[in-house]
Design a protein around this nucleic acid. Sequence first.
DNA 1: AAATATTTTTAGGCTGACCTAAAAATTATA
DNA 2: TATAATTTTTAGGTCAGCCTAAAAATATTT
Lengths: 217, 217
Amino acid sequence: MLSLTEENYLKAIYHLSDDGSKSVLTNDLAAAMNTKAASVTDMIKKLSAKTVISYEKYYGVNVTSKGKNEALMVIRKHRLWETFLVEKLGFSWDEVHEVAEQLEHINSTRLIEKLDEFLGFPKVDPHGDPIPDNKGKLKIMPMVAIDQLNIGYQGKIAAVKDSDSQLLKYLDKIGAKPGTKLKILNKEAYDESMEVLINDHRIFISKEVSQNILVVE
Amino acid sequence: MLSLTEENYLKAIYHLSDDGSKSVLTNDLAAAMNTKAASVTDMIKKLSAKTVISYEKYYGVNVTSKGKNEALMVIRKHRLWETFLVEKLGFSWDEVHEVAEQLEHINSTRLIEKLDEFLGFPKVDPHGDPIPDNKGKLKIMPMVAIDQLNIGYQGKIAAVKDSDSQLLKYLDKIGAKPGTKLKILNKEAYDESMEVLINDHRIFISKEVSQNILVVE
DNA sequence: AAATATTTTTAGGCTGACCTAAAAATTATA
DNA sequence: TATAATTTTTAGGTCAGCCTAAAAATATTT
């Protein structure tokens, strides 16, 4: 059983390690957790004792398969709650994260199974991120940001990358959410801005924005 | 801002004081919180410093009006979540308490207002307990347990008293929930058991059970 | 009202999650 | 490759929320 704080550390490690595929350094984790390296070292020892990460002094940490599973269950809860907040309670896209950060720590298997059912077993959350199933299985779609694509590309927005609230507000305003139709009309070589068709509206977007709009490859 | 633990203590004090109408003794609070008197004394000092209770050494604590309001907001959240769990997620009556104990500490005014709206601004929770409004106003109905009533009484079940899971399971089985029609057919003077009509079914119930079924006076 | 029993508080300790400052190990640079 | 810079760990301390044991205050009994 992990404490709330331990769950948050584990989740951060999981994300920083690119879903468990590389090791995470103490300082990076400290930055992500808004804490000091010394505190991280303390926590690393605890998580290591609980066998959710493996740890080699001075060389960073790796999530174990047990840890990966526990992290995915927290992510599952987070994304199901985000979906609930947007779909059922009418939260806007950019407001959900903070509340979901709290809700993800509610401990009840029954609750999360019932919630999943109530939501109709969604496959992705409102940002387009995949929701792990109750076994911790995650269906990852290979995606590209649209700044990598050429003029004439047509498809549907699959997800948005950053979870920055400002960006989400902006994307919401221009109607760019997962599921929305998108076409690349023009690209400006100078600043890599582009003109796109979103929901049949012509819009100019900067490179920064285009790097955050993802489509399935 | 109260911590999770402080919120739980305050809620317990509020309930033990009969909604703020009398003082609460250290030992009673220790029993309710499953902790030791010494720990309670510690916590009492903290809550006192935060002006949610007033405290006179050796003579127990009283909730202040500020404390009363904070307690009612936690109770509001608890009862709204219980309603959500039963009405929307299909939890049975006796399963909700434990989960609601966790959910009541989620901190987001916006969330609770949205939830209230989603549920259609319910006035009572699934046990028939009144839900405080967002100002902390509580509408208390004067109620009696049916063991106090006479043969021939007819009315609707308004609430159930105890929140013991065993009792709730039993009441659920016999169909005795808030809103259900009820009539007292017979009373046995010897053991104070009674025969009642619940949902047009004749049922014998013991004194213990009849003391837990409430109707509006 | 004195003695006894009960309740409550104080004193001092523990653990989890944090901190600062200093030491140790690793990595980069001259 | 020796020295400097950076990263990480260790050592020791704080605060919240708990504990036990002992002291103090209150309540009860005789």
